[in-house]
Amino acid sequence: NKFNKEMRNAYWEILLLPNLNEQQKRAFIRSLYDDPSQSANLLAEAKKLNDAQA
């Protein structure tokens, strides 16, 4: 399933972002589970926040 693969990839990438705190990571991951079809958008948002907090 395409969404499962995308979601899994986004999950691990979000977990490994160094500048997000645990609460932020949990919020993004919760959103991933709520709507896996938004994986790419959520990952992009997480990366943007990660860069902003660098």
Rank of each mutant, 00 (worst) to 15 (best):
L15K: 11
L15P: 01
F28Y: 10
E6N: 02
L42N: 05
A44Q: 11
L17Q: 08
A54S: 07
P18T: 05
F3G: 15
N41E: 05
S39L: 14
R8T: 05
S39M: 14
A10H: 03
R30S: 13
A44T: 04
N4R: 02
E13S: 12
L17S: 11
Y11Q: 03
K48Q: 12
I14N: 00
K48I: 09
Q24P: 01
L20V: 13
Q24H: 06
L15H: 13
L16Q: 13
Q23S: 05
Y11N: 02
I14S: 00
Y33W: 12
N41V: 13
E22T: 12
K48S: 07
K47V: 07
R30E: 06
Q38S: 13
R26H: 13
R26E: 03
N21W: 12
L17K: 05
R26M: 06
W12F: 12
S39N: 05
N19T: 08
N4A: 03
N21K: 10
E22P: 15
Y33E: 02
P36M: 03
K25W: 02
A46P: 00
K47H: 06
K47S: 05
I29V: 12
Y33R: 02
S39D: 01
F28N: 01
S31N: 12
L17T: 06
L42P: 03
I29S: 03
E6P: 01
K2Y: 04
L32T: 01
F3N: 15
D51R: 15
L49K: 11
S37K: 14
L42V: 10
L20G: 00
E6G: 01
K25E: 02
A46I: 02
I29Q: 03
K5D: 08
D35V: 07
F28M: 13
Y11S: 03
Q23E: 09
L42Y: 07
E22M: 06
A44M: 10
Q24Y: 05
Q38W: 10
Y33G: 02
L15N: 07
P36L: 04
S31E: 14
R26L: 04
L32K: 00
I29G: 03
K2P: 05
I14Y: 01
Y11T: 04
L16H: 15
I14R: 00
L42A: 06
P36D: 02
Y33I: 09
P36I: 03
A44D: 05
D34R: 08
F28W: 07
Q23L: 05
F3K: 15
S31V: 08
L17D: 02
L43M: 06
A27V: 14
Q53S: 09
N50Y: 03
N50V: 03
E13W: 08
D51T: 11
N9F: 14
K2A: 13
L32A: 01
P18D: 05
S37R: 06
Q53D: 10
D51Q: 14
R30T: 14
N19R: 11
S37N: 05
L42D: 02
Q24M: 08
E45K: 07
R26S: 05
A52V: 08
N4V: 02
L20E: 00
R8I: 14
K48R: 12
K47T: 03
Y33A: 02
L15G: 03
W12V: 04
L49H: 11
A10R: 02
S39Y: 15
K48E: 07
Q24D: 08
R30D: 04
N21V: 10
L32H: 01
R30W: 11
Q24S: 07
S37H: 08
S37D: 06
E45T: 09
N21S: 10
E6F: 01
S39R: 13
W12I: 05
D51G: 11
E6Y: 02
D51S: 11
M7T: 08
L16G: 15
L42E: 03
E13T: 13
N41D: 08
Q23R: 08
R8Y: 15
A46D: 00
L15A: 03
N41M: 09
N1T: 03
N50W: 01
N21H: 08
A27Y: 08
A27W: 05
W12M: 03
K48H: 07
A46Y: 02
Q53Y: 10
N41I: 14
K47G: 03
R26F: 05
S37A: 12
R8A: 13
F28G: 01
R8E: 15
L43I: 08
P36Q: 04
F3L: 15
Q53F: 08
N50Q: 06
P36V: 04
K5M: 01
A27T: 14
Q23F: 07
A40V: 12
L43R: 14
Q24V: 13
Q23Y: 14
M7G: 01
N4E: 15
F3Y: 09
N1F: 00
D34Y: 09
R30L: 08
E45L: 09
A52L: 08
A44S: 11
S37W: 10
M7W: 15
E6S: 02
R8F: 15
A27S: 11
K25F: 04
E22K: 13
W12A: 05
E22R: 07
F28T: 10
L15F: 11
A10I: 11
W12K: 15
R30V: 08
I14M: 08
A44N: 12
Q53V: 10
A52Q: 09
A54T: 12
S31A: 06
L16W: 08
N41P: 08
L49T: 11
A54N: 14
L16N: 12
E6Q: 04
A54E: 07
D51V: 12
A40K: 10
N41S: 09
S31Y: 14
N50K: 01
N9G: 05
P18A: 08
A52N: 10
S37L: 14
K25Q: 02
E45H: 04
E45P: 01
I29R: 02
A10K: 02
L17R: 02
L49M: 09
L49V: 06
N1R: 03
L15R: 10
I29P: 00
E45D: 12
Y33V: 05
K2V: 03
E13V: 11
E22Y: 11
N19W: 14
Q24F: 08
F28I: 06
N41G: 06
Q53L: 14
N9L: 15
A10S: 11
N19L: 08
S39W: 15
R30Q: 13
R30A: 07
S39Q: 04
L32S: 01
L32M: 04
D35Y: 05
S37E: 09
Q53R: 07
W12H: 14
A40H: 09
Q38K: 12
N1E: 13
R8H: 12
Q38N: 05
P18G: 10
L16M: 13
L49Q: 13
L43D: 01
S31Q: 12
N19K: 13
L49F: 09
E45G: 07
P18Y: 04
N41Q: 12
Q38T: 13
A27D: 10
A40G: 06
Q23P: 11
L42K: 06
R26K: 05
A27E: 10
I14W: 00
E22H: 14
N41L: 11
A46V: 05
R26T: 05
A54R: 09
Q23N: 07
A52P: 09
R8P: 00
A10L: 03
Y33N: 02
D35S: 06
D34V: 06
D35H: 06
L16I: 04
M7R: 00
R26I: 12
A40N: 12
L42S: 04
A40W: 08
Q38M: 06
R26P: 02
A44F: 14
A10M: 03
